[in-house]
Amino acid sequence: MRPVVAEVALEYRETFSFVKLDVNTQREKTLEYRIRGTPTYIVFKDGEIVGGFVGAMPKAELVQRILGILEIEDPE
């Protein structure tokens, strides 16, 4: 089974970057951004949070949500 996040990260790397942070080991940023559950996705643009959402979901929904926050039409 391919990781959804990895696929999205590769396919949309021209549109946005994707990184991950382990909440169990990186406590400082976990607390700073008040992460209550995993997975939690926070979208940054120009150093500012522009949106976020929580929960595992299918690839298409994940893409739709991110592009929606960024107000970008799906280039695929």
Partner: peptide, 28 residues
């Protein structure tokens, strides 16, 4: 993939990114 960031690299990688960036807060 995606690239793993830490508390130390977060600001550099995320906050100073020239392109929009999504951070997945995850747990194994």
């Amino acid at each position: 993939i995606p690239i793993e960031v830490s508390d130390k690299t977060f600001d550099t990688v995320v906050l100073k990114s020239d392109v929009p960036i999504v951070v997945e807060f995850y747990t194994d």
